[in-house]
Design a protein around this nucleic acid. Structure first.
Lengths: 222, 222, 222, 222
DNA sequence: CATGAATGAGCTTTCATTCAT
DNA sequence: AATGAATGAAAGCTCATTCAT
């Protein structure tokens, strides 16, 4: 299970500011969840840096103070959401495993793109915030690297496993893999967050085509 | 002249907080430039949101007050730098014009990638800040859209002008063009800002290969 | 009830900077009051323009931030105090209603003057600040006009209701009424704020005499 | 000569910040005057506290720095204007000297009121600023006291010189004199600065009537 | 568990005044 | 005599976080 693996690597459970483990009753769990949902919603509306703790608690219908019962600071909510999102991405990366070479693979890629896009749409506020957290912030930096590495690892592995036909300009598999992920992530950002007007079908087809070509159509030199 | 055109569309010259045009003497121009340089440097070191106006003035060796003589707030410095950067990018986009199909075109692309990367490296703090300005900020949003549109326009035009050979999965030229730009921009970010360890040659070769393939190797359906 | 009417016309209750109504608990109400008292005290000592928000909080024994929990800026404290004061003045104006013609009226006026002076003394820092708020400030301007109109209205009404004996130079009742108020207000300022050395009895007697004469002793031509 | 007397009592000529006497050439004198005129104009438009040194120099068409060549700070311009105004008022006070008892005196008063009002209108921004300078400021405080004393002195002297007929409530001549001045000054403020809508004739008649009555119609007890 | 009042560090900004040219 | 760039003290204000109830 990718998910379990992820859980192990990533930071878990709520911890109090004072470092003491916090055990949540049922009600507490519900309040915590309300705060997370509210945060996600507000992050989408106003962006993470623009969001005030008050916006979150107002949306969640809790008191201001309650927030600090569940999270030791604002970044921790984002982290919790980012971890959730990262786990989904791990799953997605795993689904990339069995992609095949020919027409069937192309169809697999299309359906995978659908999944990715759904996921991005659902979690864009978190991704955006997380990605634009300053690189200095070790917490988010590590998370980002891990997810990227996971994706890129799967892809570059497949590229390398592919018999190169020598007809094309050879690529570096590592670079190409990261480039494909970068392309997909950033395209979704332009399209879904900044709002460029493309038809979903065109996007799915084109992404799948470029990926397919990038993965199976290239020779590689490493 | 693309550059002139760009200059015309984009916002020019320094304006005072009170909206009155400020005419700068030689000394003033020098101080203003010192502040811009300092800002760029500090944005790189601490990131834009983390940068305090005082960090900039300290770096520039001016007083706090001098800053507000030339800019009405922190965002305005970023804007000035972003406009500079956008103009460079317009120039770069223009250089994309004469790219050819075959091996010669591939070499052209490689050298173009070198330019792009140099430029990105030089201006990354600005690009990062600008790109992560919240989409709500009309000022930066418009600038971003314009640059993206310029790049994507050139590329999609070339894609459409290319005889499709029907062998590959057809792509939507508009989507593909934005995707290629997204890829390049984001890859540079991962590589140069977040720090992935790739060799520059590999990057240039691989980017050029994927672009070449993306532009000339695909059939398109629109 | 004049007072109720006043309350209705004038701006009520504390409002937060973000425009949202703030409901104050008992503790909050106490803190707010402490701030108002402190402000009045400091306004007297250093004058309104010379007062810093920090002076107020220091006097009130609260933090700087607490101030902005209850008022959105310095002017708003003054406004709150001015409204309080205006309400007192409305009450005073109402007391002017039953003043009679003869000797009894003179005594009534004397006792009324006592009230006015007490009131002025108590609230002088507020009145001074309020009156010297620049006329452009609609907030204070309106309040001032309302109070003046109320006073002048009562007085001019009585002047007009008085049988003129034709012996004296006729006056315009509106002008005379405003003039009497102006006289009283400004005299109190010279005397109580700038510090002229008059005996309280002399002041009360003289003011009452001039008012009595001004109200009942003049013929009017309108 | 009242004017000479005034000149002697009041603070004279421009002095440099460093305390050295400044001798102005013809051009300098002209610039200084331009600054004074500009200041008066701007004080009227924006009020003294709201006026920035830049507003004055902009209006005068000089450089920012030039201001400090002629005045050592902002208050000094106001002071210079206030002294000018005070001198006019001294002259006015002197004109009060020969006022007579009967109908002729009433006409004299009316024409005097015209003068006063013209003067107030011309100098209102200065008077307002000066009067609302914080009482702590010795400079303006003294000037104000002197002018008030001069006016009140003339009036109370006449009141005391008048045979009291015993019919009216006796007044304290000192209080009454200050009260009449206060009335006039403050009425003009309400009327000319805050803008109450009275006809000039009504004002002149009514003011003259109240003063006439106040001066000649009262018995006094001191 | 929950509340919301209180805190205070830290930011942006203004503008009277000084100073080098 | 004039210029206008530079200074820096001091203000107003925000908001993440803490704390008493």
């Amino acid at each position: 299970m990718a998910k379990t693996a992820a859980k192990r690597q990533l930071k878990p459970a709520p911890v109090r500011a004072d470092g003491q483990q916090r055990v949540l009753g049922e009600q507490g769990e519900r309040t915590r969840q309300r705060l997370l949902d509210a945060a996600k919603k507000v992050f989408r509306e106003r962006s993470y840096p623009e969001t005030r703790v008050d916006d979150i608690t107002r949306e969640a219908g809790t008191s201001h103070g309650a927030f600090y019962l569940y999270f030791s600071n604002k970044a921790e909510v984002l982290e919790a959401l980012a971890i959730e999102t990262a786990e989904r991405m791990y799953t997605l990366a795993d689904e990339l495993e069995g992609i095949e070479r020919g027409e069937a693979g192309f169809d697999q890629l299309k359906s995978w793109m659908e999944h990715f896009i759904d996921n991005y749409e659902e979690n864009s506020p978190v991704v955006v915030a997380w990605m634009s957290a300053r690189p200095q912030d070790a917490r988010f930096d590590r998370l980002g690297r891990e997810v990227l590495a996971k994706f890129a690892g799967r892809i570059s592995h497949t590229i390398r496993a592919t018999e190169s036909d020598g007809e094309r300009h050879p690529v570096n598999a590592g670079v190409a893999a990261v480039a494909l992920v970068a392309m997909l992530e950033r395209f979704c950002y332009y399209w879904l967050v900044r709002g460029g007007g493309f038809a979903r079908d065109d996007v799915v087809d084109t992404m799948a085509a470029i990926w397919h070509q990038g993965i199976f159509g290239a020779s590689h030199k490493d």
